[in-house]
């Protein structure tokens, strides 16, 4: 399986979609080479706006464009989009329910060497708390391409969470992306591994590890964290044990969202794999995943501990 960064797939998908959907305009904050909106910029220079290093204005300008019928994709790193411009997203986009897509790259600790200041581990929590916002966290390049199209067609604000580091391709081209619908990638009886983003590939590996131990794990991909697919989570709960896995803080992200559903509808023992309320640091993505306990082995160990 080839490894492709979801940001690459985003840039390509956006440039393709630009052909078809003329209302799409793209804004970036001096990071177009990194977010890959540069591909769109090259193809449609008149519909690309570099807003410079000014994220609050980036978001506000996107809101204004949306009031006039445009479909703006506003891109920068996840930490700046959701952190620096949080209140602009809240008051100028989500509250008036404007059709702006915030496609943020460099999410999570797999940003790597740039270190903690650039590693967004709270963005899902922040975006999930906003009414009207749809939060999508694709697992690989194929899913990203389909998610970008789905986001453009959805009416209303969408947060797309994308990564810097190449990830394994999980899906083949025939995959059909349905926003809001969780996906069972592997059936299983003993434990359910619910993952999002780069952790989907890890969860699949974890299921293989568990199989060797005689544990039959179900693997679920939650690409849409909000609105979350309660049905698939309740199906997972039938296994009697759940492990969530995300490249995000364990506070407020996928694990919290799944726990909210379970607590109200069908409580079962669960463990959350994620960043445990600490900041990241510099290092290679793989080293960081190991250091912060978010590898396939960590997911498998959490599952084992639930079955003991």
């Amino acid at each position: 399986m080839p490894k492709i960064a979801t940001r690459e797939a985003y840039g390509e998908a956006l440039a393709e979609l630009g052909e078809e959907i003329k209302e799409i305009v793209v804004l970036d904050a001096d990071l177009s080479k990194s977010t890959k909106t540069s591909i769109f910029a090259k193809k449609f220079p008149e519909r690309f706006f570099n807003m410079g290093i000014a994220e609050q204005n980036l978001i506000g300008t996107a809101a204004g464009l949306a009031t006039c019928g445009k479909i703006p994709f506003a891109s920068t790193f996840a930490i700046f989009a959701t952190g620096r411009a949080f209140e602009q997203i809240r008051n100028s986009i989500c509250y008036p329910n404007l059709n702006v897509k915030i496609a943020a790259t460099h999410a999570g600790i797999t940003v790597g060497e740039d270190g903690a200041t650039h590693q967004s581990i709270e963005d899902i929590a922040l975006m999930r708390a906003l009414p009207n916002m749809t939060v999508i966290s694709p697992a690989d390049a194929v899913e990203t391409k389909k998610a970008v199209r789905a986001a453009a067609l959805l009416k209303g604000p969408v947060y797309l969470r994308l990564g810097r580091h190449p990830v394994e391709t999980v899906f083949n081209e025939s995959y059909e992306f349905q926003p809001g619908k969780g996906l069972v990638l592997k059936e299983g009886r003993d434990v359910a591994l619910i993952a999002t983003g780069v952790m989907v590939a890890e969860a699949l590996k974890a299921a293989e590890i568990l199989a060797k131990d005689g544990i039959d794990a179900m693997v679920i991909n939650i690409h849409t964290i909000k609105p979350i697919d309660e049905e698939v989570i309740l199906k997972a709960a039938e296994c009697g044990a759940i492990v969530t896995a995300e490249e995000h803080s364990i506070i407020g992200g996928l694990g919290s969202a799944v726990a909210e559903v379970l607590m109200e509808k069908k409580p079962v023992p669960m463990k959350r794999i994620g960043i445990r309320d600490v900041f990241g640091r510099s290092g290679k993505p793989e080293e960081l995943m190991e250091a912060y306990g978010i590898t396939a082995e960590d997911v498998a160990e959490a599952a084992r501990s639930l079955k003991r």
Binding site: F49, Q56, N57, G60, A63, G64, T67, N91, S92, Y95
Partner: peptide, 28 residues
């Protein structure tokens, strides 16, 4: 609140945000 009041072109209230939105409208 643009969604509640006819004639209101943009939701505002949190200071500092309106000029950016006006820019977006002008660019459009």
């Amino acid at each position: 609140d643009m969604k509640k009041t006819p004639g209101v072109d943009m939701t505002t209230g949190s200071l500092g945000q309106g000029l950016s939105v006006a820019n977006g409208m002008a660019i459009a």
